[in-house]
């Protein structure tokens, strides 16, 4: 009867066999110790049983040697598990340099995925076989958690921050996509599927949707919101030049440093005064309420795509609409 029940989820990413190997190792080690203790308890309980209740046991108080060995040996074994699991963890959280990036937003109770080429989908995620994929996501409301068991990846979606998971699918098929962090009424309905496709089919699927690419959409917003009027590409504007800025270290007005990443750009758009780059005046208005999560992601994608400083080719020129009206409405 039990033969029909699988004990392990499908392995559909390069990371899954790594996680499973660690799982088998920890299972074997812990099962060994559990059996050791259980057998000792059972054997002692039977061998030294006294039915009368009025005898006494041997006058044994303890043994320093035993105490030390059952402190030190488990410590070293647990350190072996710690070491191995930490290596696997860094593989899980450190994405390779070249990944296919997909943006996502969780909200009560759905996942929306935005492909860079413009295609977007809800509760479904189409990815190509054999290529490292990085999903960058946030939440619009409460905490969620993006979980794909077949890939052994999970990360919480936190409002106000970006999280990411990465994986390289190794098997064509459909896999569960769950929300793992309790998020209210339809938490268990916030599920979907990941569809792993052959790369050429995936390419066909991507081009089937149309729509503006994220980069183009970001450029559009960059002009509409008036970002371009201060963030001049040659650095002569009131705000820092953005080309080539992504991934670099910046010194802040308070002397601290920050890496320019997705979260920092997002924060700079919504709460510009929080961590101001040194040498600039706190004149940027907040854009909270002016631009939604997808818009923010498109802006980030656009800023990432800007060429390195000194190559002003694709950089837009000044002249967007001034954000005067936008300044008035603060955060909710």
């Amino acid at each position: 009867m039990l033969s029909g029940i699988p004990l392990f989820p499908e392995q559909a990413s390069t990371l899954a066999p790594e996680v499973d190997a660690l799982y088998f190792f920890v299972t074997a080690v812990t099962a060994f110790f559990a059996l050791l203790v259980v057998m000792a308890v059972v054997i002692f309980a039977i061998k030294y049983r006294d039915r009368t209740g009025d005898r006494v046991g041997a006058p044994i108080i303890g043994s320093i040697g035993l105490e030390l060995s059952w402190t030190i040996i488990p410590f070293f074994i647990s350190m072996a598990i710690f070491g191995w699991s930490t290596v696997v963890f860094f593989h899980l959280v450190r994405a390779p340099d070249q990944t296919l990036e997909i943006y996502s937003t969780g909200k009560q109770w759905m996942w929306r995925f935005q492909h860079i080429d413009g295609q977007s989908e809800i509760n479904e995620l189409h990815v190509p076989l054999g290529r490292p994929v990085k999903v960058i996501f946030t939440s619009e409301d409460v905490l969620h958690s993006l979980y794909i068991p077949a890939f052994r990846v999970k990360a919480d979606a936190i409002p106000g921050r970006y999280s990411s998971v990465w994986f390289t699918p190794t098997k064509v098929g459909e896999y569960h996509l769950f929300c793992a962090e309790y998020c209210g009424t339809k938490h268990s309905g916030m599920i979907g599927r990941v569809v792993v496709m052959e790369p050429n089919e995936h390419q066909a699927w991507l081009s089937g949707g149309g729509g503006l690419s994220m980069q183009a959409r970001g450029e559009q917003l960059f002009q509409q919101l008036g970002c371009a009027s201060c963030h001049l590409p040659d650095g002569s504007g009131r705000g820092p030049a953005l080309p080539g800025r992504f991934g670099t270290q910046e010194t802040l007005a308070n002397g601290a440093t920050v890496t320019v990443n997705d979260t920092y750009i997002r924060e700079s758009i919504l709460t510009p005064q929080m961590r101001l780059v040194a040498g600039y005046q706190p004149v940027m208005p907040t854009f909270q309420g002016q631009v939604n999560e997808e818009g923010l992601m498109s802006l980030i994608e656009y800023i990432k795509s800007l060429p390195t400083a000194g190559q002003p080719a694709a950089a837009p020129q000044a002249g967007g609409t001034a954000p005067a009206a936008a300044v008035q409405s603060g955060p909710r």
């Binding site: 110790f33 598990i81 699991s85």
Partner: peptide, 17 residues
Amino acid sequence: LTGLFLASLGLDVHLHD
């Protein structure tokens, strides 16, 4: 002993929640 699985970073990512 199953607490050791959850203390293991590499396993907790999958097992968490």
